[in-house]
C-alpha cells in the first residue's frame, strides 16, 4: 500500500480553506485527523489530488458552554478531547462516554468530531448521541455560514448534504430538558471494532413518566436514523419494563440494516430491539445526560 501523490495546502483561515475547496472542486478534500481519509487513499477508495489541511485553524478546536446557545464543540476537537472535556463531563457525560467507546486510543487522539460526521459512515459512533441530544452543526462555505440539524447532514453512506466548498466548523448541543441520555455501541470485540448496532437515546422523565424521548440508531441504515415511531410511543408513558421492551420492538421495525461480514440484517434488527430497551433503561436510571 502506498499513499499517492497529492498537493497540500494549510490555509490560515476558514474563509481561505473554503475558497480553496471551491476553487478545486471535487478534486480536493479536507484533511483533519486523517484517520479515515489517509487509509482510504492508501486503499484507493478515495483519490483526491489536493488535500486542504485545517490544522492551523485552532478556533475549531474548542469545547465551551455559550449561554443561550448551548455547548459548542469545535469540529477539530479529537475524540479524546470529548472524552476529557470538563464541560462535557459535567453537562453531557454521555457524549464523553460515547467517544470513549470509539476505535482505539491512537485513533481517538487523532480523529476529529468533524471528520466523524463528514465521512458519513453509517456506523459512526458520534452522530447517534448528537442526534439524540438534538444537536445542530454550523457549516461555513464561500457564501458564509449556515446551520442545520445534525440528522439532516447525512445523504447516504459516505454522502452528506454539504456543498463542495463547505466545512463543518461546530457542533452545537442546545440547552434542553432531557433528564438522561445514553449511547450503547454493540461491537464484536473490546476495542477497535465498528458498531454492529449503535443506539442512542435521550429521555425527559418526570415522576416516572416519559415526557419526551429521542432515539437515534447507527449502523442499521444508510445513514444514522431517528426512530420517530418509538419516540412517539414513549411520550407520556409511565416507565416500566414492558414499555421499554415494547419500545425496543417498535425501534427494530424502524431500521433497515444490511447484511455484511460483521452481522446479518436479521441479527442487527433484533439487536436494535435489545439495545433500545437497554439504552432507555440506562438513560432513565443513570440520571445524567
Amino acid at each position: 500500500m502506498y499513499l499517492p501523490d497529492f498537493e497540500y495546502y494549510a490555509p490560515d483561515s476558514i474563509a481561505e480553506a473554503c475558497k480553496l475547496l471551491s476553487q478545486f472542486g471535487p478534486r480536493a478534500k479536507v484533511l483533519a485527523g486523517g484517520t479515515d481519509l489517509i487509509a482510504k487513499m492508501k486503499n484507493e477508495v478515495l483519490k483526491p489530488e489536493i488535500l486542504i489541511s485545517i490544522k492551523k485553524l485552532d478556533q475549531m478546536k474548542k469545547i465551551e458552554y455559550v449561554p443561550g446557545k448551548g455547548v459548542v464543540i469545535g469540529a477539530r476537537s479529537t475524540h479524546n478531547d470529548l472524552v476529557n472535556s470538563k464541560v462535557l463531563n459535567e453537562k453531557y457525560l454521555s457524549i464523553s462516554e460515547a467517544a470513549h467507546q470509539m476505535a482505539a486510543n491512537q485513533v481517538r487522539n487523532a480523529g476529529t468530531v468533524g471528520g466523524n460526521i463528514s465521512n458519513a459512515v453509517p456506523s459512526a459512533d458520534l452522530p447517534p448521541i448528537f442526534i439524540a441530544l438534538n444537536a445542530a452543526v454550523k457549516v461555513t462555505g464561500v457564501k458564509g455560514e449556515r446551520s442545520l440539524a445534525l440528522e439532516d447532514v447525512f445523504a447516504g453512506p459516505g454522502k452528506t448534504n454539504l456543498t463542495q466548498d463547505e466545512i463543518i466548523t461546530e457542533v452545537i448541543i442546545p440547552d434542553q430538558k432531557m433528564t438522561g441520555s445514553n449511547y450503547i455501541k454493540f461491537g464484536l470485540r473490546g476495542a477497535g471494532a465498528l458498531a454492529v448496532v449503535g443506539v442512542a437515546v435521550a429521555v425527559q422523565v418526570e415522576n416516572n413518566v416519559i415526557k419526551d424521548a429521542r432515539v437515534a440508531l447507527g449502523a442499521v441504515a444508510a445513514t444514522p436514523v431517528r426512530a420517530k415511531k418509538t419516540e412517539e410511543f414513549l411520550k407520556g408513558k409511565k416507565v416500566s419494563d414492558e414499555v421499554l421492551a415494547e419500545a425496543g420492538v417498535i425501534a427494530s421495525g424502524e431500521c433497515k440494516p444490511i447484511s455484511d461480514v460483521r452481522a446479518s440484517a436479521e441479527y442487527r434488527t433484533d439487536m436494535v430491539r435489545v439495545f433500545t430497551k437497554r439504552a432507555l433503561r440506562a438513560a432513565i436510571d443513570k440520571g445524567h445526560v
Binding site: 482505539a104 470485540r189 473490546g190 476495542a191 477497535g192 461480514v261
Partner: peptide
C-alpha cells in the same frame, strides 16, 4: 477487519 483479540478481550 480481521478481528484478532485486543487486550480488552
Amino acid at each position: 477487519g480481521y478481528m484478532i483479540m485486543t487486550a480488552l478481550d
